[in-house]
Amino acid sequence: MSLIVKNVAIAGASGNVGARVLDALLNIGFNVTVLSRMSKAFPTGAYVKVVDFNSAESLSAAVAGQDAVIDTTFSLDVETPLRLIDAAVHSGVYRFITSDFGLDPDLPGVHDMPIFGRKKASYEAVKRYAAQNRLTYTVVACGAFLDWGLSSGFAGLDLEGKQASIFGDGNNVVPWTTLNDVGIATANVLIHPHETLNRPVYVHTVFMSQNQVLDEAKKGLGKEGWNTTYNDMDSLLEKALADLQAGRISASVFEVQIQYCLATKRLAHPWARDDNSLLGLKEWDSDKVKELIQSIAHKTA
C-alpha cells in the first residue's frame, strides 16, 4: 500500500470536530470527499457523496479509490464506525483515523467507561486489521476540547454567571486542545503517514488543571462574584452508571463519565509523548487561555 496520501474521505464533516478537520484538509490541498447522509453545502473544494451509513455496500463504494478515511462522527452508535472501518478495508484504503479525539486509548481503564464503548470498539477493530496488514490506522488523542468545553459549560465554568463546578479537587493537570488545533493535527497526520503509523498521536493546546483554567477566568473576567462548588466525582460516577443501567438516560449521565476521567490522574494526565511539533501545533501560554475565555464570555454576554 502506498505511503503517499492524496485522496481523503471524511465522515461527520458538519460536526464540531469534522468541520475543522475538513477545513484543514482543504487548506493543505488534499482531494477531499465528504461522506454525507444527505445533500448539503460544504466548503468549496470538497466533493460530496451521499451515502447510506447503514449499508456496507454504499460505504464501500463511497470510499473506493480513497487513500485515507477519517471518521469524525459522534454518537453512541457502535455499528456505524465499525461499518465504515470494514468498508475501508474492503476497498483497500491505506489509512483510517478513528473518531476518538479524547484521552489516551492505551491507558488502562479509559475505554472501560461506557461512554467510550464506541471508541473502544473502533480501536480494537483497526488494531485487528493492522495486525493482518489489511489497514493502517491513527488515533488522535487530544484530551478535552478547550474552546468547546468553555463555551458549552462542559469544562465546569459558567463564564456569564461566574459559576464554577469543580471536578474533585480540581488539581489534576490534563491536556486541553482547541477544535482548530484538533483539525490541524488530524490533517497533518496524513502528511506524516510513516511517523504516525498504527499508533495514537498525542497533541495538546495546553496542559492545565481545572483550577488553573478557573484562575485564568478570574484574571480575564474579574475575581469578584464567583461561586465555586467542589464535586465528589466518585458518587457522581456511581449515580451516572446506575442511571445508565436503569435506562435513565440524560446528557449528564455521559458527561460525568468524562469529567470523572479528567479528575482522575491515572486516567488523564499530560502526555508522556508529545507530537505537537510533528503535527504543526504550538503550545499556548496562560495569557492565550485568558484571551480565549474573554472572547467566549463576550460572545455569550
Rank of each mutant, 00 (worst) to 15 (best):
S55F: 13
R37F: 13
L3P: 07
R83Y: 13
N198F: 05
N211I: 12
E238A: 15
L150G: 12
V8Q: 04
H298G: 02
I70D: 06
F167L: 02
N27W: 00
S250G: 03
L279W: 11
L3W: 12
K49M: 07
D77T: 08
D285Y: 03
K290P: 02
S36V: 02
F30A: 07
G153I: 08
Y202P: 02
N211M: 14
L262Q: 06
F254G: 08
A61W: 10
P114W: 06
N172K: 04
D234T: 10
G18I: 05
F167R: 06
Q294A: 15
V110D: 08
S235E: 14
A272C: 01
L35W: 05
S39I: 12
A242C: 11
D243T: 03
R37W: 13
L221P: 02
Q66R: 14
L82I: 14
L35Y: 00
W284P: 03
V69M: 10
V32Y: 08
L267K: 04
A155N: 12
D232G: 05
A187I: 06
N211G: 01
L84Y: 04
D274R: 11
A88R: 08
S209W: 05
I166W: 08
G220Y: 01
F145Q: 09
K120E: 00
V206A: 00
G156F: 06
